[in-house]
Amino acid sequence: MDLILEYQGQLLSGTWVTIKLALLSLVIAVLFGLIGAGAKLSRNIVAQKIAGGYTSIVRGVPDLVLILLVFFGGQELANQIGILTGLWDYAEISQFAAGVGTIGVVFGGYMTETFRGAILSIPKGQIEAAVACGMSRPTIFRRVIWPQMVVYALPGFSNNWLVQIKSTALVSVIGLQDVVYNGFVAGRSTRQLFTFMFAVLMIYLVLTAISDSGLRWLDRKYSKGIVRSEDG
């Protein structure tokens, strides 16, 4: 316990990195999810194919492999593009950027499926009715699709988010000083790895518990008046 107090600065700063990483990558995931779902549901064959390839790769390749690939290979690629186009000489892909970008894009793939499913759950008649009323497409999205989509997507969204927080642990492998990395370094130098890894485990448990109760609250708030089976 004393040891944990001695290293508490490291653990706290690591936890903060983890939280920032998770939240920023969530923003990217939601954006990619919306774009992906839009592409999958559009009538444009090319957009459909691209979105299909995107979700296939995300499902087919483990996130850690992609993180390593982006961090090591992406840097090289970014430099080469810069040299070829002459736009920049050197673009830094930091561990944080590689982590946020990759986890965001990977979970964007899962969000794509969630949002697509949610949009498909909206009765077609409502959209037809909106068209008949003369609403423009953005208005239909804003007034008809979005409010219902949020409700239908919430269980899947919650699930993705809980998986995503846990996935942030993987960035410690590329040396980003998140809570796992700092905990591991502390445990290694004090030879008390169980103590520190257990502390890290508890920190994650707190993070997921907070998210879980927050999402349940949102779910209760938004799903009033909607009947849904219990298994979500």
Binding site: L24, V27, L31, F96, A97
Partner: peptide
Amino acid sequence: LMTSLTAAALVLAMAGVS
């Protein structure tokens, strides 16, 4: 709108200090 927002988020994430 979403495309430009994403681009902005990516640029923000990638902006490192050289």
